[in-house]
Design a protein around this nucleic acid. Structure first.
Lengths: 117, 117
DNA sequence: GTTATCAATTACCTTTAGGAAAGTTACTAT
DNA sequence: ATAGTAACTTTCCTAAAGGTAATTGATAAC
């Protein structure tokens, strides 16, 4: 039976992996999250211009909505003129930090691997 | 100067993150790697039918080539009739394990978060 | 009343990812 | 000669991701 338990666990892990990928795969989500880690909560314009680099307003808007729907960020409209909107990480978003750190570590090591080739 | 050092590091991290995503983003690469972790080296047919689940031969072939070009797996043609081909993780691929584990952990926690909502 | 700012949204388009189905090559077994 | 197997490859197609540029709505400053 131990083998079946093991196979079950493997399938569970594969499903959990696929869940994560469905949400976080793509060019921008991790970058937005990293930017919010580094610089703290930010306004739309800051994310657009400074921190992420290269993203368009349309795509940024869509990605932020996805992240909000999945409880990883909060969206706060401020009482300023003109209106500003602040995006911040939720507590739950802390769960993505190990992923991002691991991706950064891999990215650095991988670069040297490829150069060495 | 400390602030500039910090900003430089941030940009470096963002680039490393983008490097990782360029290679590993998408529906299948992490699944293939996880499958090779769990079940060890496998043949094309095994990856296709059993372990990953749902991938087509065309896509599997392309993903395996990408991973091989990036030194994450090796491709070995065996002396069998008919020919079989075995795919195995390289030593360098071990660097992706923390990413995958973190993604699995996040996937599980995220599922309960979303259900609770 | 014109211009500017912020946070988008809309329309349009191109590129990439990915899937389905059939075909290919090389070999073996019957 | 025919059928089967393994590892692909090819063709064709759709859907999703992502980019560009212009526009919107609310507000305020000049």
């Amino acid at each position: 039976m131990d083998e079946n338990v093991c196979i079950e666990t493997s399938k569970e892990n594969m499903l959990a992996l696929k869940d994560s990928l469905e949400l976080l795969s793509g060019k921008w989500k991790f970058c937005i999250l990293l930017s919010l880690y580094i610089y703290g909560s930010q306004r739309f314009k800051d994310l657009l211009a400074n921190s992420v680099g290269g993203i368009s307003p349309k795509v940024l808007s869509k990605e932020l909505q996805d992240l909000e729907n999945n409880l990883l960020i909060t969206r706060t409209v401020n009482n300023t003129k003109p209106v500003t909107v602040t995006y911040a990480l939720t507590k739950h978003a802390a769960e993505t930090q190990p992923v991002i750190n691991a991706l950064i570590t891999f990215g650095k090591k991988h670069r040297s691997q490829i150069i060495a080739k």
